[in-house]
Design a binder for these strands. Structure first.
Lengths: 245, 245
DNA sequence: CAGTGGTCTAGACCACTCT
DNA sequence: GAGTGGTCTAGACCACTGC
């Protein structure tokens, strides 16, 4: 199409991505039909199909026979499951209730700044900091601290992250046009500190599953650093890998 | 092809799978070329390609331009990474050394039997049981207990699972023709019990990451139940999800 | 009904591997 | 050079959706 030596369908993929980044097509909207896209990009329809198929596999698009191709919505049930790994004792997916308990602007510690690709010692705060407790029923099961770059979420206030069960990545997408498309997690086991013990109503020294997460949008830009402390008596981290045949 | 109303390429997929199950094509072997497969199944070459593409995406086949299509080998580096989630403090993949510390035949407890799809109260032992310690350098970092159905691994002895760094699923595949293609894991945080403390050289009551895993072969047949206790001071559970764009 | 994506085909050409 | 999979195309037909 333009210049490089990539396969045609990857060129098309890249151009479609570019349009998603700029918001030419917004989440939930219908994209042009395959035939239209083929014409727009001056390639065969099969080539466009290959690009669309890849983007659907990566959950950026949703395709429905008879309806069309749509930009994926992070608030849809399909996406609630993605990036959400906690299940109850009976194996059912739990949607915990989130309660904000503190928020402020911070200069994040060096370790966090590095993970977010932020300057090390800024003159002013360059990140939002939030702390939540998540509960299932009346039982607190998780404490979460989130650090968000102000550059990515310029006008964010605590009112944008209301208490409730609405997942944050849906809010990021609809309110701030920030699409989380990838994340890395590291899990460790730690002992509950006094503060966490109080919030989770567990003895000091109880075993806690700690989840560290960095979430990324397009071009590998980190948009969230998150640390969660989970009481795995009530809720477990579940992972399914592979396909059944 | 035969009878049902599935799309053609899925029929082809199913037939290819059937051949992988019976061992008509063995791991590491080259499959017939696309053209040959198309002729064999009486379909167009593009239809075969779609089936092959799906099976490659699920890591059952490996395709190499100019060389051919091969049955995936679980001992290859590509597969060592799959199903292996532990990384060192510096983020490097760790390949721990495994030391067998006990083995016997057992009637597994009800919870394990259920996960493996075994009869509840058999008259004779119907499973193998093994216990390992894994170390990086001279530091023990993980205790693992494995339960394997005797029906799936009939002639297994402790000599089949030698100490070393060779991954078990490679052994399963080459020695027992058991292909692990999917697994489920549940992670919790627990306190180290006296026995584990001694093996991992940590204080009693230290935080330990517990990993419960069930591994499956074709047709959702469970072939392994595994419990690991990990000292996350030295090694962490890492997970990358999504694709960068 | 028209319009969408899903399936399926036949075939051309390219890039790679091995001999 | 022969044989492989990778890319790309043009087009037919089917299945589903919504009007």
């Amino acid at each position: 199409m333009t210049t490089t030596k990539l396969p045609l369908y990857k060129e098309v993929t890249a151009q479609l991505i570019a349009n998603l980044v700029t918001g030419k097509w917004r989440p939930g909207e219908m994209m042009p039909s395959e035939a239209k896209l083929a014409e727009m990009h001056g390639v065969g329809i099969s080539t466009v199909r290959q690009a669309l198929r890849d983007l659907e596999a990566d959950h950026l698009l949703v395709r429905r026979q008879g309806k069309g191709t749509f930009v994926a919505l992070h608030s849809s049930p399909r996406h609630q499951d993605r990036f959400h790994s906690l299940v109850g004792g009976d194996g059912s997916k739990e949607i915990p209730h989130r309660t904000l308990i503190s928020s402020r602007r911070v200069k994040p510690p060096q370790k966090v700044a590095q993970r977010l690709g932020l300057r090390a010692a800024p003159s002013r705060p360059n990140a939002h900091y939030f702390r939540f407790v998540s509960s299932v029923g009346s039982t607190p099961i998780m404490v979460t601290e989130i650090t968000l770059p102000i550059a990515v979420f310029p006008d964010l206030t605590r009112k944008d992250l209301p208490n409730g069960t609405v997942l944050l990545y849906g809010i990021f997408q609809t309110t701030f046009h920030v699409n989380v498309i990838r994340m890395e997690e590291e899990l460790t086991a730690v002992l509950s500190d006094p503060e966490t013990s109080k919030l989770l109503n567990v003895p000091r020294g109880a075993p806690i599953l700690k989840i560290e997460r960095v979430a990324y949008t397009f071009h590998n830009v980190a948009v969230e650093f998150r640390e969660s402390w989970v009481n795995t008596q009530y809720i477990r981290y579940y992972r399914d890998q592979g396909t059944a045949y």
